[in-house]
Amino acid sequence: MLLKFRDQRQNPSEDLKGQSRWRRAASPWVAAAIPVLIFLVAVHVYSNELLLVDMAIYIALAQGINIIYGFTGYLPFGYFGFFGVGAYVAGYGIIHWGLSGPVAVLVGGVGGALAGAILLPLFRLRGAYFALTTLAAGEAFYAIVSNPSLTSITNGPYGLNLATAYSSGWSFGMAVGLAGVAILVAALIKRSRYGMTLKAIKDDPYSAAMAGINVARDRFYAWLIAAAIAGVGGAIYGWAISVFYPQDVFDVTVSVFAIVFALFGGIGSIWGPTIGAALLYAIYNVVGVSNPQYFQLIYGLIIVLLVLFAPRGLAGLMASIRERRLFGGGAR
């Protein structure tokens, strides 16, 4: 599979016309590096580091949604479940196994991936049913983790305190690193044979199977990657804020934001989810922290308008503008 990953497609249909070979090849790395650099500069200019950490995590989550929904066609409303599992697995690692923050975060990612593996049977379900059943699964994870009967393991409803492992520099660095890695992975997948395989699976799983694609397995890889991203994201978040309750990390808002950000920016594109997440999260911080209901109203309206008028998001709008300029006004 690794070999497939690196194969370059000879003729990607969505390529900008006339872009030279070397620029095409560099794009994934550029798409990952630029946001990373911006974050590294911003932290020296802007004092609220936690906000930057959150934004970086959301960029990563939006790319995770991009991979599983944009590329593969499965929308997991329950994405927040992996975020919460990651936070708790990392937290458990810190408290019970004495792991350091960074190591615990990676273990959290593994936890997220495992949770994804558990939910594998859900892929039998189509579209809306998959979305809603993952939502139920995410809530089920929450109900289990926060259950008073399990206090000895998860501290039940009382939350975790990870203050001993607090390290603001490291958590910021890992958050930015996660964003960079998530963007890179998404971009590399998109222009690889594997990305083409995912598109085929998304378009028609039966036809894809007859084209020799092991649909279940290839879909599973995308799911694991997305789940791991969410797991790491949750782990970093829990670590960065140090003290959290189950409802803080098993919060459906995490899924909502990730999905809305990705849709707004444009799923299927590489820069879309990055810009969508950065932009909307910035707006959230201006409007939403003090008045979350106004931000909720805003993004509710954004969702409705997007679905009705611009399902391909900002990236789609840019593409339409470019197409219209290339082909001129009038009949196509």
């Binding site: 929308l75 909720q296 309206l301």
Partner: peptide
């Protein structure tokens, strides 16, 4: 699904 979800957020 997403549309009605948007509606739910607006109502909330």
């Amino acid at each position: 699904l997403i549309l009605f979800f948007g509606l739910s957020q607006i109502i909330e």
